[in-house]
């Protein structure tokens, strides 16, 4: 199976986020970057499929120079080779603009399977994988926890709401957006890092790909979430208040 995994580099979770002067993106200067978590699960799924059925795992990532470190990490964990779509206007592109880049890079490879993360940890649109499928003209399925190879294609397990799952069979080639938590992630190893050095990392120039950057969605402004604390007194007898509290914990806060 030839599997392509789309991996995005996002700010590290602990990173102190500051809004840039433009008000449209964050200050990237002193940020640390890491691999988008659902993409790490997509990579893990691809590696496990390869280990079971053979084939090749190719990583594709669009972004500036710095993205190379995340690509190396993916190669170190076991991907066979990588495509780096070099572009500096990532923050200006909407999901369609990014999917256009990825589709142009992926198309010549003719993969059996394209895996993306469900959504990115920075903008969280959850759109890129689905649009990519449309651009490649492939069937897709979202929120995938497990992939199994069948005779004619694949069987996938989707996460639904409230602890429900759905299993569907679909043909390949296909695009899947992978949800976090379906597998156990592997750790990076020294041997992997050393092997990664000799693996192929091909850079593609965004300008050469004839991928339109025209945005259909424009970003107006971003802001940090406001901290809110509000206190609510639950009226009634002790029993009534307790019942109301349980209701709230169950259906509003959803911790029960």
């Amino acid at each position: 199976m030839k599997i392509i995994v789309a991996i995005k580099q996002v700010p590290e979770r602990d990173a102190p986020i500051r809004i840039a002067a433009s008000g449209k993106w964050i200050e990237e200067a002193d940020l640390q970057f890491a691999m988008n978590e659902p993409d790490a699960y997509a990579l893990e799924e691809a590696l496990q499929l390869k280990e079971k059925h053979g084939g090749e795992v190719i990583v594709v990532s669009a972004g500036p120079e710095r993205v190379a470190t995340t690509i190396r990490e993916a190669l170190a964990k076991g991907a066979d080779r990588a495509l780096h779509v070099v572009c500096d206007d990532l923050a200006d592109r909407d999901a369609l603009g990014v999917a256009n880049l990825l589709a142009a890079a992926i198309r010549p490879e003719n993969p059996d399977l394209v895996l993306t993360g469900l959504q990115s940890e920075d903008v969280g649109l959850g759109q890129t994988g689905v649009i990519l499928a449309e651009l490649l003209g492939l069937p897709h399925s979202t929120l995938i926890l497990q992939v199994e190879k069948t005779d004619g294609g694949i069987k996938v397990k989707r996460e639904l709401e409230a602890g429900w799952f759905q299993t569907i069979e679909m043909p390949t080639p296909a695009v899947l957006t992978i949800q976090s938590g379906g597998n156990k992630l592997r750790y990076a190893t020294l041997m992997g890092i050393k092997k990664a050095r000799s693996k192929e990392l091909r850079t593609l120039n965004a300008a050469d790909l004839a991928a339109s950057a025209r945005a259909v969605v424009t970003l107006e402004q971003i802001s940090l979430p406001k901290k809110q604390k509000s206190t609510q007194i639950l009226p009634g007898t002790g029993k009534e208040a307790a019942t109301a509290l349980v209701e709230k914990l169950k259906f509003e806060v959803r911790v029960l």
């Binding site: 156990k184 992630l185 592997r186 750790y187 190893t189 020294l190 041997m191 992997g192």
Partner: peptide, 13 residues
């Protein structure tokens, strides 16, 4: 065992 990825342990990973 760890530098080659031979050791598989949920907590360790």
């Amino acid at each position: 065992a760890v530098n080659t990825g031979e050791w598989e342990d949920e907590h360790g990973a």
